[in-house]
Design a protein around this nucleic acid. Structure first.
Length: 424
RNA sequence: CGGGGUGUAGCGCAGCUGGCUAGCGCGCCUGCUUUGGGAGCAGGAGGUCCUCGGUUCGAAUCCGAGCACCCCGACCA
C-alpha cells in the first residue's frame, strides 16, 4: 500500500475523549473513529489488524476441530423467553421492533440461537460432538462503555459452542479449547494468565478467563509463576482504599505477584443449562432422550487489538508484535523529490511485494521527520530507510521499531536481511 | 442509575466577572524556500460558540431545562 493513497488519517494531538494509551493511539494512528458512545468505526488500518487477529483465531479453532458458521444478529424474543433470559438480560440487550410490532433483540451472545439450530438438526448421539463458532458483531447496552474499543456497545467477538453427549466428551473439548486459546494468545504476542472465574450471566458451573497483563486493565489478579497459580484479585473496597491486599501463594507460601489485567477470553462449562430449558436433546445408545452437554468459548476480537497496544507501545506510538502487525515493513524514501531516492524506494517496495512481504511505502512528499513519526505511530516493526545521504555511500538503512537497532546495508543486501528479520 | 467533569473550526485549546467584525496553535488549500525525527515565509478557506427557552438595548459569556461526550462505581469479551 502506498501511503499517498491510503486512508490512514493520523493525528498529531491526542483527542481529549481518550484516556488510556490504546484508545489514544488507535485514534491517532487512524485505526478507529467514534460514531457514538461505545460505537466505533474501524478504518482500513484498524480493520487490517482485526483481520489478522481473526485469522490467527480461525486457524487455531479449525485446528481444534471447530467449524465456522455465521448466525444472525437479530434474535426473536420468543427464543430468549425459552431460557428466561429475555427478562434476565434485561436492559443490557438492545431491542428493536419490526413493522408488525414483533420484538427482537440484537444478539449480545448466541447460546439460544446456536442451541436452537443444533436441536433441530442433531438428533442422535452419533452426530455428536459438534463444535461450531463464528466471528460476529455483538451488541450489549453496557451500563458504561469506556476506553474506546475496550468496552464497546457494539464489538466483534469470536464465540464458539460445543455439544457433547456426556461430561467426559465435554471435558475433552474444553481442554482442546483451552489449548487453542493458549496458542492464540501466545501467537498474538501476549503476556497472559488463565484464571478460574465466576460464570456470570452466561452461566454454567466451571469457567476460566484469559487475562492479558496490562496496568490499564479493568480487573486484577494475583499470580505465582513458579507454581502456575493464578487467582482473581478482589477490588479494594471503600473510597480511600488504594492499597492491594497481599496474597500468599497457596502452593509455595511466597508472596504472589499482582497485576491489573484485561480479559480477552472466557471459557464456560455450560452443562445442560441451556439444552435442558430448550428441550435440546438427542437420543443416546439406549434410545433415551438426553439434553446436550454444552460448552461455550468466547474471545473479544476487537478487544485483543486494544490489549495488544496496551501491552506494547512507547512515547512514539504503537509497537506491533510481528504476528499481528498490519504491515511487515514500511519503506521510507525520505525525499521523494530526489529521483534516485524515489526510484530506489519504489524498487525495493516492488521487490518486497513480489516476495510476498506485506509492505507499506511512504511515498508522500513529506519531510523526513513526518515520515519517521507516522511510521513509529502506526507501529510497523521494520523501517527500510532510503535517503540521499545513504545512497551517496551506496547504503540503505533498516531500523527496528521495538529496539531502535539499525543495520546499514547495500541495496542488494537489504532484502535478504528483511526476510531474515521478519522470520526471526 | 448515583457521583464528578466537559461541550467554541478537522484536532488541541483560549475567550466567559455582561459589550464592537469570536481568537490562538496544529491540520487543510496556493506559492516560494527547505528536506534524517511532526520546517520557514507569504497569502487563503473553514464557525448553527451543543440545543431550546429566559433575562437584557445587547448573550459564546448570566439563568433554566434538555441533549451529547468523558471520568469514578455496579456489569461484562
Amino acid at each position: 500500500m502506498k501511503l499517498s493513497q491510503a486512508f490512514i488519517p493520523t493525528m498529531k494531538e491526542i483527542p481529549s475523549e481518550a484516556q488510556i494509551p490504546s484508545h489514544q493511539l488507535m485514534l491517532r494512528a487512524g485505526m478507529i473513529r467514534k460514531l457514538s458512545s461505545g460505537v466505533y468505526e474501524f478504518l482500513p488500518l484498524g480493520y487490517k489488524i482485526l483481520k489478522k487477529v481473526e485469522q490467527i483465531i480461525r486457524e487455531e479453532m479449525n485446528n481444534a476441530g471447530a467449524q465456522e458458521l455465521l448466525l444472525p444478529a437479530l434474535h426473536p424474543k420468543e427464543l430468549w423467553e425459552e431460557t428466561g433470559r429475555w427478562e434476565i438480560y434485561g436492559d443490557e440487550m438492545m431491542k428493536v421492533i419490526d413493522r408488525n410490532k414483533r420484538q427482537f433483540g440484537l444478539g449480545p451472545t448466541h447460546e439460544e440461537v446456536i442451541t436452537d439450530l443444533v436441536r433441530k438438526e442433531v438428533k442422535s448421539y452419533r452426530q455428536l460432538p459438534v463444535i461450531l463458532y463464528q466471528f460476529q458483531t455483538k451488541f450489549r447496552d453496557e451500563i458504561r462503555p469506556r476506553f474506546g474499543i475496550m468496552r464497546g456497545r457494539e464489538f466483534i467477538m469470536k464465540d464458539c459452542y460445543s455439544f457433547d453427549k456426556d461430561e467426559a466428551g465435554l471435558n475433552i473439548n474444553y481442554q482442546k479449547m483451552v489449548q487453542a486459546y493458549k496458542n492464540i494468545f501466545t501467537r498474538c504476542g501476549f503476556d497472559f494468565r488463565m484464571v478460574q472465574a465466576d460464570s456470570g450471566n452466561i452461566g454454567g458451573n466451571l469457567s476460566h478467563e484469559f487475562m492479558v497483563l496490562a496496568n490499564t486493565g479493568e480487573e486484577a489478579i494475583h499470580y505465582c509463576d513458579a507454581c502456575q497459580v493464578t487467582m482473581k484479585a478482589k477490588e479494594p473496597e471503600g473510597e480511600a482504599a488504594t492499597t492491594v491486599e497481599k496474597q500468599l501463594c497457596p502452593a509455595c507460601q511466597k508472596e504472589m505477584k499482582y497485576s491489573r489485567v484485561i480479559e480477552v477470553g472466557h471459557t464456560f462449562n455450560l452443562g445442560t443449562k441451556y439444552s435442558a430449558k430448550m428441550q435440546a436433546t438427542y437420543l443416546d445408545e439406549k434410545g433415551e432422550s438426553k439434553p446436550y452437554i454444552m460448552g461455550c468459548y468466547g474471545i473479544g476480537v476487537s478487544r485483543i487489538v486494544a490489549a495488544a497496544i496496551e501491552q506494547s507501545h512507547d512515547n512514539n506510538g504503537i509497537i506491533w508484535p510481528k504476528q499481528i502487525s498490519p504491515y511487515q515493513v514500511i519503506v521510507l524514501p525520505l525525499d521523494v523529490t530526489n529521483e534516485p531516492v524515489r526510484k530506489t524506494g519504489e524498487e525495493l517496495y516492488a521487490q518486497l511485494l513480489s516476495q510476498g512481504i506485506d509492505a507499506l511505502i511512504d511515498d508522500r512528499d513529506e519531510r523526513a521527520g513526518v515520515k519517521f513519526k507516522d511510521a513509529d505511530l502506526i507501529g510497523i516493526p521494520v523501517k527500510l530507510i532510503v535517503s540521499t545521504r545513504g545512497l551517496a555511500e551506496g547504503k540503505i538503512e533498516i531500523k527496528l521499531r521495538k529496539t531502535g537497532e539499525v543495520f546499514k546495508l547495500s541495496v542488494v543486501e537489504a532484502l535478504p536481511k528483511i526476510t531474515e528479520l521478519i522470520q526471526a
